[in-house]
Design a protein around this nucleic acid. Structure first.
Lengths: 189, 189
DNA sequence: CAAGCAAACTAACAAGTGTTAGTTAAATAT
DNA sequence: ATATTTAACTAACACTTGTTAGTTTGCTTG
């Protein structure tokens, strides 16, 4: 068992608070209280409130970017790639629910790193659309507006953080499978 | 053309700012500057920052509640009811994009009205699930976890505010139709 | 035992927060 | 013409914000 550093503890606690109230509404004194220390003591471990946000969001965004690169350069069919994307989101959200909430709701409060984040997000969405387009070309996916399809799927995946903590028995694999079926095959008989 | 009251102007402007930065990050001075006046002058029209949030969110939540009551007591088939829900979300989001962003992101900053809001939301989601369950019973909808189905559809509908402003030519009806098709029939061939 | 270090503390600051009080100027109604 | 209303203003308040400086405490290592 690797001992978690104090800094990692702070970031984890911050992510939890950010999920509940949002970055702006959480004060350094709130965070300190949650850690059982005084606000000034936080600065022995982190350099600023902003740094906490940066670490939470950028590390997640880079993880998504990396995994997307593996998926898009793989040799699977488009539909299978979509399933891999669903699994990716489920897995990361299960592992780091608070961070995902933060990524979704507080990205606009990034300062130095805002442009970088937006760039990563834009690329991710473009890769997503390209996969859908290739699936349309290969006749795996209906010839409908790729943006609507992307938006529809990605909205659900991005909202997973709202829903996953409610389920006690989160089996990542079975959730990813159920979700893939609904998103890809629809719900009608 | 009914002349908009000053209070309505303030609330509209506030909703726009809240969408961009969130309730907590928008100061009364920000809002005043956006209105071209001083912060103290706002208080000739509104009683508090909190009141602005309340008006934006509660009026929308009540509108959804009212429309949901019409839909659920109607005589349509379950699938048609789902389509009506999709249309409802598209229509309200087109009409009040900023307010919908606020509803989705800032509800937790409600004070007096938080419990009331949560109650309305809970009822809405329960009605939604009941429609899905009735569709499963009548064999219109696949016999899958109703919660997953509800979550999947509602996540997309709740994220519409992120997507609708990007499209210049939003034809509500055609968007609702495309979206219904993707959400209900899926995307595979 | 001494030195070094990690991690907490108290005290304080400068800037920004929502909000109130009291006033003024122009438009509208009597 | 006078009175009322609307909507802005200046000045200030009490409090909260992120952050810095300097200090203390207890553990670990030479």
């Amino acid at each position: 068992m690797k001992p978690e550093t104090r800094k990692e503890e702070i970031i984890k606690t911050a992510a939890k608070l950010f999920k509940e109230k949002g970055y702006s509404a959480v004060t350094m004194r709130d965070l300190a209280t949650a850690m059982g220390i005084k606000a000034a003591s936080l600065y022995n471990h982190i350099t600023s409130k902003q740094e906490i946000l940066k670490v939470i969001i950028i590390s997640l965004a880079e993880e998504f970017t990396q995994e997307m690169n593996l998926i898009k350069t793989s040799n699977h069919k488009a539909i299978d790639k979509l399933q891999m994307i669903v699994s990716l989101h489920v897995q990361i959200t299960v592992k780091n629910t608070y961070g995902m909430a933060c990524l979704n709701n507080d990205w606009m409060h990034l300062e130095e790193q805002l442009d970088y984040y937006l760039e990563l997000r834009k690329k991710y969405e473009q890769d997503f659309i390209d996969i859908i387009k290739s699936g349309i070309k290969s006749n795996e996916i209906i010839d409908s507006n790729p943006e609507i399809i992307m938006f529809s799927i990605l909205s659900t995946l991005r909202s997973l953080y709202l829903w996953i903590p409610k389920k006690e028995d989160i089996n990542s694999n079975s959730l990813a499978q159920s979700l893939s079926k609904v998103l890809i095959s629809g719900i009608n008989t």
